[in-house]
Nucleic acid binder design. Structure first.
Lengths: 146, 146
DNA sequence: ATTAATGTGTACCAAAAAGGTATAGATTCG
DNA sequence: CGAATCTATACCTTTTTGGTACACATTAAT
């Protein structure tokens, strides 16, 4: 029940980019976050492909946010790296959970999982990058309202 | 961001035990849940060691719930199998997150992770076994109130 | 045009975690 | 006693995670 290390780094990368005035090259981002350049680059590629981060190739190129911090949720960043949020395999659409079969008793949990999942997902959606930047107390307020 | 398959099975095992009139042997539980007996036994041992399930050895022995379904939360079952709920390594007490070091900027996320974690944990704590048994709508109500 | 600085794409690899199995032993009922 | 049942430890295989390597494409500056 944990986001991957890669997703954790991605959050920090996006945070660093949000605080930067100009575009930053991979090396600078890596240094700021404290991860190797190679691995940073791998994460950055996923962020670029998703449209969250923009890149400029060539000499004096680099990376910058493609969207405003208030539009970027933690859920989005985590899902770009880790894929859809699913607290149980049972929620995976490509997995034939016993709900569709004989043993109905076994999937009493399907609905429960779904509700909890939605609830967690909503929470992560509400925490945007700018709320993290501005102050942590606002995160507190936001979460208490869900 | 997923509970393990083992924790998923544990939930179903506890659910089956809650619905049983008498104690059940490992084989019967395994059949009811649809998991191999060996693996079921492995999970049952953890549940017994935690005090959630009681066991009787010897011929005509078996397993039963040691507590009332209304006292058993999903969080508890999941934590027995998967360990403490931590959405990021950063929250692990044995991990030296950069909050305790130089690069203060890097752990802006510590507080945020902590809040979200608490919030998820509270949700799983509120969903008790009996609320799952009685009807799924009650789960809906409970979750909407958190 | 050339070259150095930078991002891109694909493939690969090692360590850790998850998922599951095997075997030997201890306990209790009948 | 002996069959049924739980207990304990160790082991194994597959998948996921975390990370690296290398060849290539693009651009800015000269």
């Amino acid at each position: 029940m944990r986001i991957t290390q890669e997703a954790d780094y991605a959050l920090r990368i996006v945070y660093v980019l949000a605080g930067a005035e100009n575009i930053m090259d991979a090396k600078s981002i890596a240094d700021a976050v404290g991860v190797t350049e190679r691995f940073t680059v791998k994460i950055l590629r996923k962020l670029v492909q998703s449209g969250l981060v923009s890149s400029r190739k060539g000499a004096s190129g680099g990376y910058g946010l493609a969207e405003l911090p208030e539009k970027i949720s933690m859920r989005r960043i985590v899902e770009i790296i880790d894929g859809p949020l699913e607290i149980s395999r049972c929620l995976d659409s490509s997995y034939e959970c016993s709900r569709t079969g004989h043993n109905k008793k076994c999937c009493t949990f399907h609905l429960v999982f779904d509700k909890i999942n939605r609830s967690i997902s909503d929470k992560l959606e509400c925490v945007t990058l700018d709320s993290v930047i501005n102050d942590s107390i606002s995160v507190n307020e936001i979460l208490s309202k869900i």
